[in-house]
Simulated assay, not measured.
Amino acid sequence: MPTTETIIENALDRIVTGYVFPEKTVAIEAAIRGRLTAGAYADLDGPALCAAVTAHLQEVCPDKHLRLLWTDEPQSLDPVDEDGGQAAFLARLRSENQGIRRVEQLEGNIGLIEIRLIASATEGANAIGAAMQLVAHSSALVLDLRGCRGGAPEGAAMWCSYFFPDDQVHLNDIYDRSSDTTRQYWTAAHLPAPRYLDRPVHILTSGDTFSGGEDVSYTLQARGRASVVGETTRGGAHPTARHAVAEHILVTVPTARTINTVTGGNWEGVGVAPDVPVPAEQALETALKALRPGL
């Protein structure tokens, strides 16, 4: 296990060279180095060290994707294996059914899809299509994102594509610091299941809904394509790379930022505000009452 000083130095190096807002890295580096010099981390290791450094990072820069994370799964420290956490993310998606927890047909011919992770648009396309095929003939749809903790931007765009008629909707842009480029995200031209058009869609959210789950919620809400029911989400809008700085410690560094084409902004730090605010545990019941008032 590297020393605490080495872990923090490696983490700061990743933040300084990769964080999407380089002008903020001077203050970040000064704050963490100051704590290190003062001995704030001297008696900490493992999860406790990660929690302390994360709290101090977010004290000076309240970006919820900027974190030091403990992982029980050992990580390779070999530079040739460095991929920003992509391989681990894809493996997790495979083990969790591409993020789709359940698909149901509820009373009143209302479809329900519970999503825990937003899959990639490549490996996840067939699973997303299978879920959408099962609800294709429902009269209304509920997307349960209350437990959705994140995922892939291109996967979020694919989920959103099902609710628009063609490939002519410019959903959002993502600016990437490392390449100094902006990538546009549009609705997909071809999908493996029918599009879900001209029927109501309600999205359920909680204070735990994060990142990719917020992307889907914010995008469909901004376009007037879905009503959001539940709690204001957690507020993390920056696509992020993960780098191993010790065998069991990762630093997560936001390397890009999302720009919604309707609002010109995103949900970073503020979350997605629901159209119908209710406690998360009441969100499904509330949505169903709105979708089937006669039942």
Results as ranks from 00 to 15, higher is better:
Leu12Asn: 02
Leu12Pro: 01
Leu12Lys: 04
Asp13Val: 06
Asp13Cys: 05
Val16Lys: 00
Val16Met: 03
Gly18Glu: 14
Gly18Thr: 09
Tyr19Met: 02
Val20Trp: 15
Phe21Arg: 12
Phe21His: 10
Phe21Cys: 00
Pro22His: 02
Glu23Phe: 03
Thr25Phe: 03
Thr25Ile: 05
Val26Thr: 14
Ala27Ile: 12
Ala27Trp: 04
Ala27Glu: 15
Ala27His: 14
Ile28Phe: 09
Glu29Met: 01
Ala30Trp: 02
Ala30Phe: 06
Ala31His: 15
Ala31Asn: 15
Ile32Thr: 10
Ile32Met: 10
Arg35Lys: 15
Leu36Thr: 10
Leu36Ser: 11
Thr37Ala: 15
Ala38Glu: 15
Ala40Gly: 14
Ala40Val: 06
Tyr41Trp: 00
Asp43Ser: 12
Asp43Gln: 11
Leu44Phe: 03
Asp45His: 06
Pro47Phe: 05
Ala48Leu: 14
Leu49Thr: 04
Leu49Arg: 01
Cys50Ala: 12
Ala51Ser: 08
Ala52Lys: 13
Ala52Trp: 01
Val53Thr: 03
Thr54Pro: 04
Thr54Glu: 03
Ala55Lys: 13
Gln58Val: 01
Glu59His: 13
Glu59Trp: 11
Pro62Trp: 08
Pro62Tyr: 07
Lys64Met: 08
Lys64Glu: 12
His65Lys: 13
His65Cys: 10
Arg67Val: 11
Arg67Trp: 07
Leu68Tyr: 14
